[in-house]
């Protein structure tokens, strides 16, 4: 299995146990459960870490940090609040941006990532989909997005840049960046609408 993280359903990969069942085992101290969760979502976490850190060593280190932080702080994740993969990706992004902040001594990135809080939210539509389906849906939606809208959204998400910084970097009026970001987000949301209905 080359890409186990993208090869099956949330509810049946590697074992027949759901995320909830695996989490229950994990909370009872079963390190094998951590291995199952890593097999499911480790690659997704690593890819995001690599995208933000742009360094394989840093990405590996951050991936380890994320899973061990998750292992140690299980009480912080409430299964009723959302899907596990989104939770893991959210904390990966947050920690990656904080690392970059520490490396570059920039001002607090956490204050400029908007209201995109590191809190997962319940979404039965997402939980019912496979990771492969979600990736394909998201890839399709991104392809439909104008490049200039995609560009500002990705700069904000992966680089943690504020819209003012994006405007400055792209030499665009702030209003243009805001419009492109908002319209891009609304359009993406529209393409994923059935997942949240």
């Amino acid at each position: 299995m080359l890409f186990p993280v993208f090869s099956g359903s949330f509810k049946s990969m590697l074992t027949d146990e759901s995320d909830l069942q695996v989490l229950t085992a994990l909370r009872q101290g079963d390190t094998n459960a951590l291995g199952i969760i890593y097999d499911r979502y480790g690659t997704a976490v690593y890819r995001l870490a690599l995208k933000i850190m742009a360094n394989t060593t840093e990405a590996e280190d951050l991936t380890q940090e994320v899973f061990l932080a998750f292992w140690r702080g299980m009480e912080k994740y409430d299964v009723d609040q959302g899907t596990l993969v989104i939770f893991l990706l959210t904390i990966t992004r947050s920690r990656a941006l904080n690392r970059i902040k520490q490396q570059s001594s920039q001002h607090n990135l956490s204050q400029r990532v908007g209201n995109y809080l590191p809190i997962a939210h319940s979404n039965p539509g997402i939980e019912a989909a496979t990771l492969t389906e979600l990736r394909e849906r998201m890839s399709f939606a991104l392809k439909e997005l104008p490049d200039n809208q995609k560009q500002v959204l990705e700069m904000g998400y992966y680089q943690g840049k504020s819209q003012s910084e994006i405007a400055q970097e792209l030499d665009l009026p702030l209003g243009t960046v805001k419009t492109r970001s908002r319209q891009g987000l609304l359009k993406l949301r529209q393409f994923l609408q059935d997942l949240v209905d």
Partner: peptide
């Protein structure tokens, strides 16, 4: 629902994979 596209954005990233040793190291 507006957060969802951001939640899922990174799933479209290129297929870079972690080394197999990372799993062992984490466990």
């Amino acid at each position: 629902s507006l957060m969802l596209p951001l939640d899922l954005l990174s799933l479209t990233l290129p297929a870079d994979n972690p080394p197999p040793s990372l799993r062992t190291q984490i466990l």
